[in-house]
């Protein structure tokens, strides 16, 4: 799951290098902005059929946190 998610995550944010790992704090990425946020939410909905609401998403800090949130559902 992790590897596939990181690939999808990079594709969504249009990141080409290998800077994304499980412990990456995604809000600190230079590609992170409100459109990236909406794209990520949409990608998770499309690929995993999971809708993360705003206040739940706010608590997620790293890429790994997002994966565990998806797995929890």
């Amino acid at each position: 799951m992790s590897e596939k998610f990181i690939e999808l995550f990079k594709e969504t944010l249009e990141i080409e290098d290998d800077s994304v790992q499980l412990n990456t704090e995604f809000r600190k990425l230079s590609q992170w902005d409100s459109l990236a946020f909406l794209s990520l939410i949409a990608m998770i909905d499309e690929e995993y059929d999971v809708v993360i609401e705003g206040n739940d998403f706010k608590k997620l800090i790293t890429v790994g946190d997002v994966i565990s949130e998806i797995e929890k559902r």
């Binding site: 409100s34 939410i41 809708v51 609401e53 705003g54 206040n55 998403f57 706010k58």
Partner: peptide, 8 residues
């Protein structure tokens, strides 16, 4: 508006 977080 629940999809939007409080900080946003």
């Amino acid at each position: 508006t629940v999809l939007i977080s409080d900080s946003e």
